[in-house]
């Protein structure tokens, strides 16, 4: 009888342990699923699949470009999946620039960029995942026009300024630290913390 309990007690513990593990892994799955949902909110699915389609073309025609674009896509995905609430402005801008390069590879000359932000200005911490949705709105506005246009990035004092030569439809809810003017052309000022 005693021998049997030697067998049973560890078995019970093992079952309990398994159930706990399962519960935890389910919770992790749920958390990941939620993050993916959040990500698709901040990342337009059109962008993602168009980017993959564009990269597929370059794999055949220009492998070096394809490799660069894959790195750009992983920068964008890293930024979109980031769990930290704050990141350096450098990281945020890196992913934003990677995003713009991917869109340029896709739509060609219709998307021009001017970027006058210097690397030395980028050590500030900013809320993560702010820049990408704004850039996506600007690019969408440009891509809807046959003649395209220009997206400008600059830093004025403590404000990051985004400008576009085409009309922009911005997300409904904008954070309070954004100032938007639409004339003479769309201009978004982001007051950095």
């Amino acid at each position: 009888m005693n021998y049997l309990s030697y067998l049973i007690i560890p078995l019970v513990f093992w079952c309990w342990h398994l159930r706990r593990e399962l519960r935890h892994s389910r919770a992790r799955e749920r958390a990941l699923a939620k993050k993916l949902v959040d990500t698709t909110d901040s990342l337009n699915p059109h962008f993602l699949f168009n980017a993959l389609n564009t990269i597929r073309y370059f794999v055949r025609t220009n492998a070096a470009t394809a490799r660069e674009l894959l790195l750009d896509l992983s920068l964008v995905l890293q930024a979109a999946l980031r769990s930290e609430a704050q990141v350096s402005l450098r990281d945020e801008l890196d992913s934003g620039r990677a995003y713009l390069r991917l869109e340029q590879a896709r739509v060609g000359e219709r998307l021009q960029t001017e970027d006058s932000v210097l690397d030395s200005q980028l050590d500030k911490l900013v809320p993560s995942r702010c820049l990408l949705p704004l850039l996506q709105s600007l690019v969408k506005g440009l891509a809807e026009r046959s003649e395209g246009g220009t997206v400008k990035l600059s830093l004025e004092g403590t404000r990051l300024v985004l400008e576009s030569s085409a009309a922009v439809n911005l997300p409904d809810e904008l954070p309070a630290d954004l100032t938007v003017t639409t004339t003479p052309h769309p201009r978004i000022e982001w007051r950095l913390p």
Partner: peptide, 9 residues
Amino acid sequence: DDEKPAREE
């Protein structure tokens, strides 16, 4: 298609 890569592919 307005995008060259998509068209060519």
